[in-house]
């Protein structure tokens, strides 16, 4: 299993892996916003956490279609499914999700504080947003795995995956943004939405890979 994690991580960072595509997209979205909104610094600071979250959400949807499709095209997916007697398929999917998250979403979390400066956010707001992204983005990868597994046989499944997955990620977005605001605006709570966000991630860490495993098992042709 560690071997699978390391292989996927290597693939993500090598040429054509697409690990940096998400970061560049994230950068493009966030840098464009201040130009569109105008030089109202207070307004930028107020919408900052929400914009960072939306940017990170869209950027992490970007690479989801390759999660299983690359393995399917070169025949690896057949072998991963065949080994399900030794390695439970849901566990294989979980490991692939974690590798995918490390290669594509972790760079977003690292880039988020820097991009927060563009949005004139306070240090507390930047820290809170980065923390909620760190906790919340794995949920997007887990839920995305289920969508990617369903659409694995489709040649241009990327858009379909986004449409399938986006509604399911809304709760993650809501609680992530809520917790980020809670850290900045005084009467609003930080801890409660943050804990719900963590619970969502843990919940989806189980549901997502199991659903994806079922879809992969029955989607073979």
């Amino acid at each position: 299993m560690l071997a699978l994690f390391r292989r996927d991580l290597r693939l993500g960072f090598r040429a054509g892996g697409g690990a940096l595509t998400g970061v560049i997209f994230f950068l493009a979205v966030i840098v464009t916003i201040p130009f569109g909104v105008g030089p109202d610094l207070n307004l930028l600071a107020r919408i900052g956490p929400a914009i960072l979250w939306i940017g990170a959400l869209l950027a992490s949807l970007l690479g989801l279609d390759r999660l299983f499709q690359a393995d399917r095209e070169d025949g690896s997916l057949d072998l991963l499914v065949l080994e399900s007697d030794r390695h439970m398929l849901a566990l294989t999917v979980l490991v692939k999700c974690l590798a995918h998250w490390t290669a594509t979403a972790l760079p977003l979390v690292i880039a988020a504080p820097l991009l927060g400066l563009f949005m004139n956010m306070t240090p507390a707001g930047i820290g809170a947003t980065a923390l909620t992204l760190l906790v919340g983005t794995p949920a997007i990868a887990f839920i995305g795995a289920a969508g990617a597994a369903v659409a694995v046989a489709l040649p241009r499944g990327g858009l379909l995956i986004s449409v399938l997955v986006l509604p399911l990620t809304i709760p993650v977005l809501i609680f992530g943004v809520l917790a980020s605001y809670g850290a900045v605006n005084d009467p609003d709570p930080f801890l409660q939405p943050f804990l719900i966000l963590a619970a969502l991630t843990l919940f989806l860490a189980v549901i997502g890979p199991v659903a994806a495993a079922v879809a992969l098992k029955h989607g073979a042709d």
Binding site: R7, R10, L11, R14, A15, G16, G17, E73, D74, G75, S76, D78, L79, L82
Partner: peptide
């Protein structure tokens, strides 16, 4: 061991 039409190897590795 299943050896299909595809080689199940990654070109980048």
């Amino acid at each position: 061991h299943y050896l299909g039409h595809h080689n199940a190897m990654k070109p980048a590795l």
